[in-house]
Design a protein around this nucleic acid. Structure first.
Lengths: 182, 182
DNA sequence: CTGAAGTTTCAATATTTTCTGAAAGTTTAA
DNA sequence: TTAAACTTTCAGAAAATATTGAAACTTCAG
């Protein structure tokens, strides 16, 4: 590993735990991202100085995140792995996967709890709060799903617009209301 | 704890680790959110069956996330704790804090690495990828900061608009270009 | 079939993180 | 001051998580 690659790989390993996967999975992913050529499981193990078994589990994990692909080289029995398409694709995958793991279970739980009848004043207050949390999470989830279905270019336009989006919204409201009233 | 509160608290404890804090911190926070009245550290420890020391550390953590407030009751020496303002405020705080912990350090590292001169073909490819990641993270960071500065109502309008925002963007482009050319 | 080349599994071990509780620290009323 | 009421700290114990490596499994060419 060259120094540039090494610092990236090590950093990604450390951050890994914050991003929802462990150190070695983070390192493996980082290495695959910056390598033009796909790598074998053994190459990963050797380069990162981790056991072959650990690599096997890490691959399973990255596959479940749909962040890597297998690639077969004709005449070679080994499996080669490479990071998914573009950086945007990867970001969207990570975002989506985290939503599934971090938000969806909570939404399910909240829906269940909100079906129950509050037994007293205190529970009524609690349920009110849970209702607010539920609505917020649902709005955010729906929104993020819709954003994900937009093309990267459009998303980019939207983001670059930044808070200017507020202006556009006001503008739209004005036009809409003048159309409605006129 | 009533059953409704208990299931919420336990769930939040389990999810806690995915949200960036540990089980007991998650439980403490959940309990404070659904309690109208502020609670003392001892009440938290007793209700959740955890040690007083653990509560003290958890409070420190929640304070650093700016998710709870202290409240003083006149004539009482104990400190009372309560969850911050609205659910929106809390969501924005969590989002912001996570960005600081999960994205900012990576951006810093990427900036450093991008200053270096690639030593060979392979490093050039790696740097190219790192550049893409950097730009993406920067765009997202800037955007999320700008969104945070918008009022909850406006944010809500924007989210409820969903992917319809694409339509509004097209519309804006059309108007802009006709203004420019006309 | 057979065995070489490769992959996965999982019990045991190592590492990291969390939690406890006693001791030290702080604040305040008298 | 003093001491009671309360909070924080932190070393060690407990729990959770990650890692290894040897054995089991799979696949395929001959």
């Amino acid at each position: 590993m060259t120094p540039i690659v090494e610092s990236f790989v090590l950093h990604f390993g450390e951050m890994g735990s914050r991003w929802g996967f462990n150190r070695t999975v983070g390192q493996m992913y980082a290495l695959l991202v910056v390598n033009k050529e796909p790598l074998t499981a053994n190459q990963l193990a050797e380069t990162l100085n981790i056991s072959r078994g650990n690599v096997s589990m890490g691959i399973k994990e990255l596959m479940s995140w749909q962040l890597i692909n297998t690639k077969h080289v004709p005449g070679d029995r080994k499996e080669y792995y490479q990071a998914l398409g573009s950086i945007w694709d990867m970001a969207i995958k990570v975002f989506e996967e985290r939503r599934k793991r971090e938000v969806d279970p909570t939404l399910t739980m909240l829906r269940d709890v909100l079906l129950q009848t509050p037994a007293n004043e205190q529970e009524a207050y609690a349920q009110e709060k849970l209702h607010e949390i539920h609505d917020l999470l649902e709005t955010v989830t729906t929104w993020s799903k819709e954003l994900q279905s937009m093309s990267p270019e459009k998303l980019n336009t939207l983001m670059k617009l930044g808070s200017g989006v507020g202006k556009v919204l006001e503008f739209k409201d004005k036009v809409m209301s003048s159309v409605n009233s006129g």
